[in-house]
Amino acid sequence: NRRVIAMPSVRKYAREKGVDIRLVQGTGKNGRVLKEDIDAFLAGGAKP
């Protein structure tokens, strides 16, 4: 169970979209999950 780095607003956005943030690959600094990562996940998967 890895620790997810994300701003509270991004965590809320993921919850609102029904996304398990632990499944999203973060592309920000130090692997931080960004809102754009949530959108990319919803569009068909995590960014490479």
Score class of each variant (00 low, 15 high):
residue 1 N to H: 01
residue 1 N to V: 03
residue 1 N to M: 11
residue 1 N to I: 06
residue 2 R to I: 15
residue 2 R to M: 10
residue 2 R to T: 07
residue 3 R to Y: 06
residue 3 R to E: 11
residue 4 V to Y: 05
residue 5 I to W: 11
residue 5 I to R: 03
residue 5 I to M: 13
residue 5 I to F: 07
residue 5 I to E: 14
residue 6 A to P: 11
residue 6 A to K: 06
residue 6 A to I: 15
residue 6 A to Y: 07
residue 8 P to H: 14
residue 8 P to R: 13
residue 9 S to K: 04
residue 9 S to Q: 04
residue 10 V to H: 01
residue 10 V to K: 00
residue 11 R to I: 15
residue 11 R to S: 11
residue 11 R to H: 05
residue 12 K to N: 09
residue 12 K to E: 07
residue 12 K to L: 14
residue 12 K to P: 02
residue 13 Y to A: 05
residue 13 Y to T: 04
residue 14 A to C: 03
residue 14 A to V: 00
residue 14 A to K: 01
residue 15 R to Q: 15
residue 15 R to I: 10
residue 15 R to N: 13
residue 15 R to Y: 12
residue 15 R to G: 14
residue 15 R to M: 12
residue 15 R to V: 12
residue 16 E to L: 02
residue 16 E to G: 10
residue 16 E to C: 00
residue 16 E to Y: 03
residue 16 E to K: 02
residue 17 K to E: 11
residue 18 G to L: 09
residue 18 G to V: 04
residue 18 G to T: 06
residue 18 G to D: 06
residue 18 G to C: 12
residue 19 V to Q: 03
residue 19 V to S: 02
residue 19 V to I: 12
residue 20 D to I: 13
residue 20 D to L: 01
residue 20 D to Y: 03
residue 22 R to P: 10
residue 22 R to T: 15
residue 22 R to D: 03
residue 23 L to Y: 14
residue 23 L to T: 12
residue 23 L to W: 03
residue 24 V to M: 02
residue 24 V to I: 12
residue 24 V to L: 11
residue 25 Q to P: 13
residue 25 Q to L: 11
residue 25 Q to S: 11
residue 25 Q to T: 10
residue 26 G to R: 03
residue 26 G to F: 02
residue 26 G to L: 01
residue 26 G to W: 04
residue 27 T to E: 08
residue 27 T to H: 04
residue 27 T to K: 05
residue 28 G to F: 01
residue 28 G to C: 06
residue 28 G to Y: 01
residue 28 G to Q: 10
residue 29 K to N: 07
residue 29 K to S: 10
residue 30 N to H: 08
residue 30 N to L: 13
residue 30 N to G: 09
residue 30 N to F: 04
residue 31 G to N: 02
residue 31 G to S: 09
residue 32 R to T: 10
residue 32 R to D: 15
residue 33 V to F: 01
residue 33 V to W: 01
residue 33 V to Y: 06
residue 34 L to F: 12
residue 34 L to A: 09
residue 34 L to E: 13
residue 34 L to S: 04
residue 34 L to W: 08
residue 36 E to I: 15
residue 36 E to Y: 10
residue 36 E to K: 07
residue 37 D to H: 00
residue 37 D to Q: 00
residue 37 D to A: 00
residue 37 D to T: 01
residue 38 I to L: 08
residue 38 I to S: 01
residue 38 I to C: 04
residue 38 I to G: 01
residue 38 I to W: 00
residue 39 D to S: 05
residue 39 D to W: 03
residue 39 D to M: 04
residue 39 D to Q: 06
residue 40 A to Q: 01
residue 40 A to I: 14
residue 40 A to R: 08
residue 41 F to Q: 13
residue 41 F to P: 02
residue 41 F to W: 12
residue 42 L to F: 12
residue 42 L to T: 10
residue 42 L to V: 11
residue 42 L to G: 09
residue 43 A to S: 09
residue 43 A to M: 02
residue 43 A to P: 07
residue 43 A to Q: 14
residue 44 G to A: 12
residue 44 G to Q: 13
residue 45 G to T: 12
residue 45 G to C: 12
residue 45 G to I: 09
residue 46 A to D: 09
residue 46 A to I: 15
residue 46 A to G: 11
residue 46 A to E: 15
residue 46 A to W: 08
residue 47 K to N: 04
residue 47 K to V: 11
residue 48 P to G: 04
residue 48 P to K: 02
residue 48 P to H: 08
residue 48 P to V: 07
